[in-house]
């Protein structure tokens, strides 16, 4: 199975003398072509969940499998390579590099993998075109609107042809209309390119585009009743 699986993941933080459990015995499996949403209020453990799924943070207990490969005990260098080659991140505020043009934002991913080929450039252009950004290739982030920036971030996350797409509140800085557009396009890309995608959000309006919805409260994950039947 290609995709991502978290098995009985628990994460505890030590703060002063108190121990805080950010995630408690979380298990979730997302297959290729599935678009899953994790919904919860702030402080519920959403970010911790995403950090662990995104190979940025190690769990206290439990296992993470990406394409059946157990990455739980990987060192920093190996995790970095997993992020580079197997995961596509869409960050909260797009987080683009200010001095790179829209096209270069995508190509830098290839650059970090080694070198940029002609095919890579063509692929980057195709991604931008799919997201309706074909005329913005040479714009800098500060010349783009919030929605455009977020679409560049989506394109960037697909650039390394990852198996997993992780999105952290992709709509938080957008109005409703733009939010719908962005998530819709994200869903489209996930389906057509057959990726396993997880979107962390607190924005209930965006859930219609997702195959399954999980709710996270105080570090505990449970599947939403609306989608529970379908998967079983």
């Amino acid at each position: 199975m290609s995709g991502i699986e978290l098995k009985n993941v628990t994460k505890r933080y030590k703060e002063n003398k108190f121990e805080i459990t950010a995630l408690e015995d979380v298990s979730v499996r997302v297959k290729a072509g599935e678009f899953v949403a994790i919904v919860g209020p702030s402080g519920s453990g959403k970010s911790t969940f995403l950090s662990i799924a995104g190979a940025l943070l190690k769990p206290t207990e439990g296992k993470i499998l990406i394409n059946k490969q157990d990455i739980t005990d990987f060192d920093e260098k190996q995790l970095s390579s997993v992020r580079l080659n197997q995961i596509g991140f869409i960050l909260q505020t797009a987080n683009l590099i200010p001095y790179l043009t829209v096209l270069d934002q995508l190509l830098i991913v290839k650059k970090m993998q080694g070198s940029v080929s002609k095919e890579d450039k063509a692929f980057a252009r195709q991604l931008l075109k799919d997201l309706g950004m074909e005329n913005k290739e040479n714009k800098y982030p500060n010349e783009c609107s919030g929605g455009e920036r977020q679409r560049v971030a989506i394109a960037r996350s697909f650039m390394n042809d990852p198996d997993i797409i992780l999105a952290d509140e992709p709509t938080s800085s957008l109005d409703t209309e733009r939010g719908h557009e962005v998530v819709q396009q994200m869903a489209e890309q996930v389906k057509t390119r057959n990726k396993a995608a997880i979107m962390v959000t607190h924005d209930e309006r965006m859930l219609d585009y997702c195959d399954r919805i999980y709710r996270i409260v105080d570090g505990k994950l449970s599947e939403d009743v609306r989608t529970q039947k379908e998967t079983n």
């Binding site: 970095s80 992020r83 987080n95 590099i97 991913v109 970090m112 960037r156 996350s157 390394n160």
Partner: peptide, 12 residues
């Protein structure tokens, strides 16, 4: 923050 982003998307 910029370097953090580069690292998050896999920059060594």
């Amino acid at each position: 923050n910029q370097f953090g982003v580069l690292k998050a998307i896999g920059g060594s």
